[in-house]
Write a protein that binds this DNA or RNA. Structure first.
Lengths: 136, 136
DNA sequence: CGCAAATCGGAACGAATCAGTCCAATTTGC
DNA sequence: GCAAATTGGACTGATTCGTTCCGATTTGCG
């Protein structure tokens, strides 16, 4: 019940990138300096984010990163899924690895729980995270 | 965004124990045979469950396990917290390990997300998991 | 009253995933 | 054409998770 540090970093990085979205492209080193995350780690997170088409990357001198979509259209659920894969609490949903399988009475109920969690995370968008005065 | 196998097993074990709750005590080996989980693993999960006062254990010959509370009063959130610790997506909530600390604009919003997730899990009780006909 | 069986509890080992770091490929600007 | 800058992927080390085994405790029976 605790997401990995990579996903945590991804949220912080996306939040920092949303501020520079209007200014165009931002380099990975710039994001590392602003977030305090080690530069190589930022690169790793960014690579996953671009792979999930959440960010757009421009290579070469003067290149950098920028959000692929408006900040309002990106939710925490999207970022978490991009870094940690699909939001599924149990592995038995995808493949039949559980020995019980047919006799497991709990199995049919997991999708309901997964949807509840995903919905809770989908309600949080990047704009709501940048609004620092809306905490209380 | 995926809970550990231990927590998954804990939910299945608690669900299996709830059926034997009326019959009194159940041995760990019995639960292992019904759930298909390796017996030693069941013991480990049970030890954590009893430590969290979710189950009551009786040692000695003829002993066994039983639910400490009615099944309706136990939620998935309780079981997950018992096995995996408090439901907190990020570690920065408890201790100041993040270098940003004061400048992190995302930090104040995590409790809201954590509460949303915990609420989603708290709505699922053991009785709702045993009701197999209420899936759809 | 002593013995034996059965059970829970904790500790140790191995494996897998995760976090962090480094180097190579590519592209733009001069 | 050259050089600088940046992304992308691959490797190493560490932490945590999962599994297994052994010991301590308690009850039932002879």
């Amino acid at each position: 019940m605790r997401l990995s540090n990579l996903a945590d970093y991804a949220v912080v990085i996306m939040c920092a990138a949303s501020r520079h979205c209007g200014g165009g492209r931002v380099s990975a080193g710039e994001l590392a300096a602003e977030t305090g995350i080690p530069a190589p780690t930022v690169q790793k997170v960014v690579s996953k984010l671009t792979g999930a088409s959440l960010m757009r990357s421009v290579r070469g001198a003067g290149g950098g990163l920028q959000l692929a979509r408006p900040a309002a259209a990106i939710s925490v659920a999207d970022i978490v899924e991009a870094v940690e894969g699909p939001i599924a609490l149990t592995a038995c949903i995808e493949g039949p690895d559980c020995a019980m399988d047919h006799n497991c009475s709990v199995k049919p109920h997991w999708p309901k729980i997964n949807n509840a969690l995903r919905g809770a995370l989908a309600d949080i968008s990047l704009t709501s995270l940048t609004r620092i005065e809306e905490i209380a």
